[in-house]
């Protein structure tokens, strides 16, 4: 796992908008292969590096040059954690759709969409704020000292 350096916080917000759109398309069409692709993307960002996120590159090359520069930086750890939470929901959603458990697929995708939209619109990372609760029920989240 690579260690990412802090990032311009507007990049992840843009990325969250794109994720919201993708998840909305999945809900509307039930196109599980698209959700599977999003699941892989979540996994790459969470477990390897945020640099693998194509929306980050779109932001850096197409959007950032048009914006006023900012010195504000956001730590990578919360962002990676959020991608991990997204990965879990997207994986459950993909398995649900692919195996015919459409309701499960929709509910899991819906949860992921709610989290992505709150992140995009308000900059709020639901998974990060709820880390303590998640950790209480998922001991595997414990990080080695």
């Amino acid at each position: 796992m690579l260690k990412d350096s802090p990032v311009d916080p507007r990049g992840p917000r843009f990325s969250a908008w794109m994720t919201t759109v993708i998840l909305a398309i999945v809900l509307l069409t039930g196109w599980w292969r698209l959700l599977a692709a999003q699941t892989v993307l979540f996994a790459m960002c969470a477990f390897i590096s945020l640099k693998l996120n194509p929306w980050g590159h779109v932001y850096r090359y197409a959007i950032q040059p048009r914006l006023t520069p900012t010195t504000e930086r956001e730590e990578a750890a919360p962002l990676r954690f959020a991608q991990g939470v997204g990965f879990v929901f997207a994986l459950i959603g993909t398995l649900g759709y692919a195996t015919g458990l459409t309701t499960l697929g929709m509910v899991a995708t819906g949860f992921a969409l709610v989290a992505a939209l709150l992140n995009a619109a308000l900059g709020l990372c639901l998974g990060c704020e709820m880390y303590l609760v998640l950790r209480r029920y998922v001991p595997a989240l414990a990080r080695p000292q």
């Binding site: 909305a24 809900l27 509307l28 929709m106 819906g110 709610v114 939209l117």
Partner: peptide, 21 residues
């Protein structure tokens, strides 16, 4: 059904946003 699922998700996100604010 997908449309209703999307509407539901948007409503939940809106309600959560207000609650958290």
């Amino acid at each position: 059904t997908g449309v209703w699922a999307l509407v539901g998700a948007l409503a939940v996100a809106g309600a959560l946003a207000v609650l958290l604010k």
